[in-house]
Simulated scan of single mutants.
Amino acid sequence: MCTISWTENDESCSAHWHSENSAAPPDRVVVVDDRTSAQSAHRMIRAGTGLLWRGDFHNARQLMSALDRRLKRSAGRGPTGGDTAALFHRHRSARAERAELLGRLLILLEPDRSLSLRRAPEVRAACDHAYGTAAVGDTGRTCVSLPELLGVLSAYQWHQKGVDIPALEARIHPAYGVFSPVRGEYVDLVARAPFPPGDAPPVVFDLGTGTGVLAAVLARRGARQVVATDINPRAVACARANMGRLGLADRVRVEAADLWPSGQADLVVCNPPWLPAHPTSALELGIYDPGSDMLHRFLDGLTDHLTPAGEGWLILSDLAEHLRLRTRDELLGAIAGAGLRVADRYDTSPRHPRATDTSDALHEARGREVTSLWRLVRAG
């Protein structure tokens, strides 16, 4: 286990280092508190120094916000020309740098995962939810970045509250590290698209299930058996828990698998990450798919996993096309190259706030985004 060291009150101190993004600990750490100015903190994190916060917790959040504003202003002074793809990559690079620098503002968790800071919130349950229960007998403290801890707290609130899914007339409870189904338009597409001719399909595969929301929708629509897969152990546990809450555990089987389960299905549904770019965190695996790998593996494996009259449903945004990361011809070529043809397509416009946020550097592309459900069948 990696450790982090610093000097405090003339004593040498150390703690376990934990980063969900596998970020390395800063080589140098200094103790800071309420007297530390944003200007001084900005200079130190730019120099690679980690800042271990020992003041008021709310002041730590204010300092992080002040640093974020400075970093955004600095990023905004960069070049703005070039094509849309270049703008996207600059935007991603600036966000990654900002996350790395803000990640140098550090918080110390006590052995019981509490915070010994003024006006600190209760974080133990949230940390146990995200990290798992602390090992029995572990008396060491753990150092995490403040942005990560705030993400842990936010994720725990979402987990407890749940996300309302009108198509289910129920809530789905996302787990930490599992992409939350906050974009309801793709859920609505699956809830409304007509099934292949005949009754509800006896066997359905839901690939990359995440929280299990699409598997639940399909089961509620009458599918007799749904096999939902995910490579992320947190997603598998999350989907199983949601099926239990919804009373669907007898009809939805959640498996840990790298995309495909064994056998064939009458309907195969896949909502792959929409943008062919590299994720910078585990949570971004739900958004970014390097080289469109999952998309291509779904298309290439579909005919082998369909029953003779079966079909595949590909749920995909065209944002990558507006960002010039993938063309429509490339998508159609991949579909044809996999021995498939498009039987039909249903489109919807995004309803999330970023679609109309003019302060977003990519707002022009987001404003033209369309999310589609492609009905795919064998070409022959």
Rank of each mutant, 00 (worst) to 15 (best):
M1D: 12
T7G: 07
R28L: 13
A38W: 09
A41C: 05
H42R: 14
I45H: 00
A47C: 13
A47Q: 15
G48C: 10
T49C: 15
L51T: 03
D56F: 10
N59D: 15
R61G: 14
A66K: 13
L71M: 07
L87C: 07
R92A: 10
G103I: 04
G103H: 08
L109D: 01
R119P: 00
T133L: 14
G137H: 09
R171Y: 11
H173V: 12
A175H: 13
S180N: 11
Y186N: 14
L189N: 07
P194F: 07
V203E: 08
G212V: 00
G212A: 05
V213G: 05
L214Y: 06
V217Y: 05
G222R: 01
N232G: 09
N232P: 08
L246D: 01
V269I: 08
P276V: 02
L285W: 04
I287P: 05
P290D: 06
G291N: 05
R297F: 12
H305S: 08
P308I: 00
A309F: 01
G310L: 01
E311S: 04
L314C: 08
L316D: 01
A320H: 10
H322P: 03
L325V: 03
T327K: 02
R328I: 05
R345I: 13
T348A: 12
T348L: 08
S349A: 13
P350L: 12
T356Q: 11
D357N: 03
R368G: 04
T371M: 03
S372T: 06
L373Y: 04
L373D: 02
W374I: 05
R375K: 09
V377P: 01
R378I: 03
